[in-house]
């Protein structure tokens, strides 16, 4: 397996990262082969796989609930984009994002369980704390963007890839994009500190990002940035890393299947 680069997240340490290589293309045959193997692992309910599940070794997560922490990435990322395009202050941009969600909720277009629905039912002080968390995220994202240089873009959405006939959706998180004439580098911003399975998570994100690319082009490098730890991890877009990402997802699907079949205590 190719190397995992660990560096401190400072401008001088970024200069020590490996040079970008020519991007690898996933062929239609490779995509078909992966999808076929995923279809061979049956599931009784729609399956959603991502790097987080891989890092947790397929252990079931707690049921999702909206909190200030789970909402901060969506609101904060959109606010950072708004800040970049309109030059609104970060705080104003976050407030406007929340206001937009509240308008969606009041117009009756939000479904139960959605972010808009949850925000509409939050009290004024809770909205204050949600604002604080989103401001933190947006500021962190904009600082990460400054760290990687002027050509950095904020990603508009995560990478999604549906495998038809396997009831499976793959989701690859991505926050920043560093395009060049030859390819791209993708950055994912994370909280806390990298754990022992962080490399497996990055390879999974690399593979999903390549699957979701219209031409199957893998990122030249996939970087995980942990601002809380002042660290970054980098995997290169090599065939070995793409294969490792694919294997992790298949293993994750197998673990989920075993759990479905396990007798309930």
């Amino acid at each position: 397996m190719s190397e995992l680069w660990l560096r401190r997240s400072t401008p001088s340490d970024l200069e020590l990262l490996p040079a970008r290589t020519t991007p690898i293309l996933l062929s239609d045959e490779q995509r078909r082969s992966f999808s076929e193997r995923m279809r061979q692992i049956p599931t009784t309910s729609p399956r959603r796989l991502d790097a987080w599940g891989v890092e947790r070794g397929g252990r079931p997560d707690l049921p999702f609930t909206w909190t200030a922490t789970t909402a901060r990435r969506i609101i904060g990322t959109r606010a950072a984009q708004r800040h970049n395009s309109s030059r609104e202050s970060i705080l104003e941009a976050v407030r406007d994002e929340i206001a937009d969600q509240l308008i969606i909720a009041s117009s009756g277009r939000s479904r139960s369980g959605s972010l808009a629905h949850w925000l509409a039912n939050a009290s004024h002080p809770s909205l204050g704390l949600i604002t604080a968390e989103a401001v933190n995220w947006a500021t962190q994202l904009l600082e990460a963007s400054t760290l990687f240089g002027d050509s950095t873009h904020l990603c508009r959405s995560d990478a999604y890839y549906n495998i038809s006939g396997a009831s499976t959706t793959l989701r690859g998180r991505r926050d920043l994009l560093l395009p060049s004439t030859e390819g791209r580098v993708v950055v994912r911003v994370r909280s806390g500190a990298p754990g022992p399975s962080a490399g497996a998570g990055l390879r999974t994100d690399l593979f999903i990002d390549a699957l979701a690319h219209p031409e199957g082009e893998a990122a030249q490098q996939f970087i995980g940035l942990w601002p809380d730890a002042g660290l970054l991890l980098l995997v290169e877009g090599t065939v070995e890393n793409l294969r490792a990402g694919a294997r992790s997802l298949l293993r994750g699907a197998v673990v989920q299947r075993r759990r479905e079949l396990a007798p309930v205590a």
Partner: peptide, 16 residues
């Protein structure tokens, strides 16, 4: 505290 100062509250760090 102006927003242009980029205030962040409860900033956690975990250095290994």
């Amino acid at each position: 505290i102006p927003s242009s100062w980029r205030p962040r509250t409860v900033v956690r760090t975990r250095l290994l």
